[in-house]
């Protein structure tokens, strides 16, 4: 039982990442009708926003400390980050420590801007082109973005630690009456799960309870009629693209302490999140979220030892197997709408 709960929890954080990326993909697909292969790259750019911010925060100036000597006997050069100078040593250190959560604030405008530029600059011209062309051009864009990041940040993963307050693990088992150390769960993964929950509810709330969201939903259902009513739906869809980019970016920002970001992390997640979208049903937002969590949890269950003893390596292929089975039995996916991408 404790192993079961542990795997359930383990699946949640991966599932959250899948759900967030798939949510953004579905938003873009549902509004603009574009299949965005560059969405993984947006996830990666988000992750590198957090790397960038922590680098900015640790920008230092050097002072020579005459009282201390380094191993060669020269006066020691002490590096002090500017933030520590401006805000005092303690506040400064705390700011640096909290670089990853702070990067959320940094990433939102950056991602919305990136998304806006991407839509206006490139994707706008592909609405009338076949889906294959959209796939190909965004695939090319993904390669370009990935290589640009590689050029500036190098090919190695860059460790980006979580704030000190969230390191360590939480003994979940004690809470449920199991033995201590039966279910150990890192704090940051818990944070990630709750963060994903907040972002997902925010997106749904935004679509459900604001006028803007209502117009966007109307546009998703029938773009032409909304346009005929004198509403500039294209502009709103562009903003939705920005929001979708921001969702992917935030997923990336918060994922950095779990997995050190490298330039190809986007591609690694992209294939899986496409599978998630298809399983959930193209164009269905709840479907994307549901399928994201479902596949994340399934994947972690499949990596349990006794299952791996029966079928070795099932954890690596279970997602694809499930996707193939679902596509064949329920061609529209779990919650797909009729008439979306039927041709």
């Amino acid at each position: 039982m404790d192993a079961f709960i542990l795997q359930l929890l383990n699946g949640l954080d991966k599932g959250s990442a899948y759900a967030l990326i798939a949510l953004g993909l579905t938003l873009i697909f549902g509004t603009l009708g574009v299949v965005n292969f560059a969405h993984g790259a947006l996830f990666m750019i988000g992750a590198f926003c957090s790397v960038t911010l922590s680098r900015i925060l640790t920008l230092s100036y050097e002072t020579v400390d005459e009282t201390q000597k380094d191993f060669l006997g020269n006066p020691l050069v002490v590096k002090t980050p500017y933030v520590e100078k401006w805000f005092g040593p303690e506040t400064g250190a705390a700011i640096i420590d909290w670089a990853v959560p702070l990067a959320i604030l940094f990433a939102i405008p950056v991602m919305i801007f990136v998304g806006y530029v991407m839509e206006r600059g490139l994707i706008k011209h592909f609405y009338k082109r076949p889906h294959a062309d959209q796939i190909l051009v965004t695939f090319g864009l993904a390669i370009v973005l990935q290589e640009v990041i590689k050029y500036f940040y190098g090919a190695n993963p860059i460790p980006t630690p979580a704030p000190g307050a969230f390191t360590g693990s939480f003994d979940f088992g004690v809470l449920l009456g199991f033995d201590p150390n039966a279910i150990i769960y890192p704090y940051w993964r818990l944070v990630y799960f709750f963060f994903a929950g907040i972002v997902i509810s925010a997106v749904f709330g935004f679509l459900q309870f604001t006028t803007f969201g209502m117009v966007v939903r109307a546009g998703m259902a029938d773009r032409e009629t909304v346009g005929l009513l004198g509403i500039n739906i294209d502009k709103r869809f562009t903003i939705m693209f920005g929001i979708a980019a921001a969702v992917a970016g935030l997923a990336g920002v918060m994922y950095t302490p779990i997995n050190s970001p490298n330039y190809h992390m986007g591609m690694d997640f992209l294939v899986l999140s496409f599978v998630v979208v298809v399983v959930g049903g193209m164009g269905s937002l709840p479907g994307a979220v549901l399928a994201g969590f479902m596949l994340g949890i399934l994947e972690s269950f499949a990596s349990m030892n006794w299952i791996k003893d029966i079928v070795p390596g099932i954890d690596q292929i279970i997602i694809y197997l499930v996707a193939i089975i679902i596509l064949l039995t329920r061609p529209r996916g779990l919650m797909g709408r009729k008439g979306v991408m039927e041709d």
Partner: peptide, 11 residues
């Protein structure tokens, strides 16, 4: 269409 691409990708 796109489903075919993703299915082959998954395989």
């Amino acid at each position: 269409g796109i489903y075919f691409s993703i299915l082959t990708l998954a395989f």
